[in-house]
Amino acid sequence: MKQKPYLKHFILLSVLLFIFFLLNISQGSVSIPFKDIFTTLIGNTDVKDSWQTIVLDFRLPKAITAIFVGSGLSICGLLMQTLFRNPLAGPFVLGISSGASLGVALLILGSSVFGGFFLTNSISNWSLAIAASLGAFLVLFAVIMAANQLRNTMSILIVGLMFGSLTGAVIAVLAYFSEATQIQQYLFWSFGSLGNLSWSEMRVFGSIYLVGMFACLSVIKPLNSLLLGENYAKSLGINIKKSRIIVLVITSLLTGVITAFSGPIAFIGLAVPHLAKMLFTTSNHKILIPASAIIGGMVLLICDSIAQLPTSEFTIPINAITSLFGAPIVIWLLLRKKKITI
């Protein structure tokens, strides 16, 4: 499609992203002078050792995670909204996050129900991530099997929602039979968290993220033709079934890995695509995919900065912030501007 000059928008957004990135790193319970943070980031080593560790091993991975999670979820939301031609769709409509939650619930809560079947005392980040991935993958597998059977794209949406309810019910049963401390532990996971990722975990996260992001580029064309509806897309030579499966796999992969490492983070995936569509007033995915990615990363960085409450010891769960601040903003935008479209 013909492109309007959006370069200015993109440059401005990238600069903003970079500023929020630096701001995010400069925040935390230990106050470190901005100059020292900057010198640490560009590889200087004549800064206090403890400060270097804080910046390089805690704050930097967290800020990068925020960008990965924010951009990944936003793109998944965009893909789902176009695929299902439904502005209410988000990355979690397929039940992926419910699947991941079920995996984690089985790991944390299951130990008291099934006895010593699972290792109880030491639940590491890795085992959480693996349990979440397995759960997400199982639901993904079921949804794709169903998608192969179903002609109607809308039915897949409903199947996804049903899987969500089903896993929710299983988790409720598990929680009923669990002890308070375990329920608390599960609850903490479900609050979402961007920190706690080591560099080795970041490497796994980052490579899957990059694969997903590059794969997105291959569905720009089918997604644009899907704006006309499935029959027109088909008449333009698009293989609907194949494109549908590719979109589902990309979304599941990204949301699966994101949920595995940072918990089910709400709202971003639903809201950011709409922010991108309002800001860029286009439906062209060649513009919307990078736009959603940049805005998504930026929004989550801002949310994380708010969650840290400057100069405070406390951090509010990121999942609460995204909805607490995000929902009113989107409502305000909707009231101010016109209607919402796919």
Partner: peptide, 19 residues
């Protein structure tokens, strides 16, 4: 069938024919 509502311009919609 009606084309789903989107922000496509006339030019963009016609350009989709070149896919």
């Amino acid at each position: 069938e009606r084309v789903p509502e989107s922000q496509l311009t006339v030019f963009e919609l016609i350009a989709l024919g070149r896919q």
